[in-house]
């Protein structure tokens, strides 16, 4: 058996893949957080709950409506985004003038309420969601077997991250968004509907979380609490990356996912906390984060 650093190649590659998959979710979620924070100055604590919502909507679409995975991949983010837009319009938008901490507290309460409601109706146990028939099975890469669905997760998340990055950096809407991040009052004076832009941004961020939830449904089980522990790791990812840049959020997400996977191979006891340790080290050496501008 081939060994690298005293570890079998299969184990190393296997954990690297797991790391890459976790990294895909970290990247999607921290991207959404960064987009929302950039414009709204709100740390969206409900991001984990919206991720869970995405997975549940997909599950319900399948079991109740008989709607398949591919349609759910489009419909679920839209539904989650719509719900988020409603929340933003009716409640969250009242908090912009206040200290950003209130936005964090509000979305924290929202997350608790959503997760509690789902636990009440569906119980705390996880429910399986079968991957679509096109993506079952595995391919032999020579050194390991790659489950097709897991490969798809990495590709799909990369494509969506790239798409969002292009949307923000290369389109007219993205230009408005970036301008409003710099100076909302001035942009509004130029006739851009900034409140609408805020609503859309929150819906976009939440939709990304919903998309990640649908992607995650076949990998992990669908459970009301699937997002609540994840969101804290994503917070750490965001602190490491610095919230200044969209690209930074994406890169840090994948990077930390891989590092976490490698830790599982070399020092499994620390794999739960390695991201938090990295966060602490980054804070000591470079408080603004890897890609952040100095606050």
């Amino acid at each position: 058996m081939t060994m690298i650093f005293g570890v079998p190649v299969q184990a190393l590659m296997g954990q690297l893949l797991v790391g890459l998959i976790n990294g895909s979710f970290y990247a999607l979620l921290s991207l959404g957080l960064a987009v929302i924070f950039g414009l709204l100055r709100v740390i969206n604590f409900a991001h984990g709950a919206q991720y869970m919502l995405g997975a549940f909507v997909a599950l319900l679409l399948l079991t109740v409506g008989g709607i398949n995975y591919w349609l759910a991949l489009i419909l679920a983010p839209l539904i989650v985004g719509l719900f988020a837009a409603l929340v933003e319009k009716t409640m969250l938008s009242r908090l912009y003038r206040l200290d950003p901490l209130y936005g964090l507290l509000f979305t924290f309460g929202l997350a608790l309420a959503i997760e509690g409601t789902f636990r009440w109706f569906f119980g705390a146990s996880g429910k399986p969601y079968a991957p679509p028939s096109q993506l079952t099975g595995a391919v032999n890469l020579g050194f390991m077997f790659l489950p097709v669905y897991r490969g798809w997760v990495v590709i799909a998340s990369l494509a969506v991250c790239l798409g969002v990055w292009l949307l923000i950096e290369r389109t007219r809407l993205g230009a408005y968004l970036r301008a409003a991040t710099e100076n909302p009052v001035l942009v509004q004076a130029f006739g851009v509907n900034v409140p609408l832009l805020l609503t859309l941004t929150y819906a976009l961020g939440a939709g990304l979380a919903g998309f990640a939830g649908v992607l995650a449904a076949p990998v992990y089980q669908v459970s009301p609490l699937m997002g609540s522990n994840l969101i804290i790791i994503v917070f750490a990812v965001v602190v490491v990356g610095g919230m200044g840049s969209i690209l930074g959020a994406i890169v840090t997400g994948y990077l930390l996912g891989v590092v976490e996977g490698l830790t599982k191979v070399f020092y499994p006891e620390a794999s739960n906390i390695v991201i938090f340790v990295i966060m602490a080290i980054v804070l000591i050496l470079r408080p603004a984060g890897l890609f952040g501008k100095d606050a």
Binding site: G109, L110, A111, L112, A113, I114, E115, G116
Partner: peptide, 9 residues
């Protein structure tokens, strides 16, 4: 958590 969440909001 439903109640605490709502009270928070």
């Amino acid at each position: 958590t439903i109640i605490t969440g709502l009270v928070f909001m």
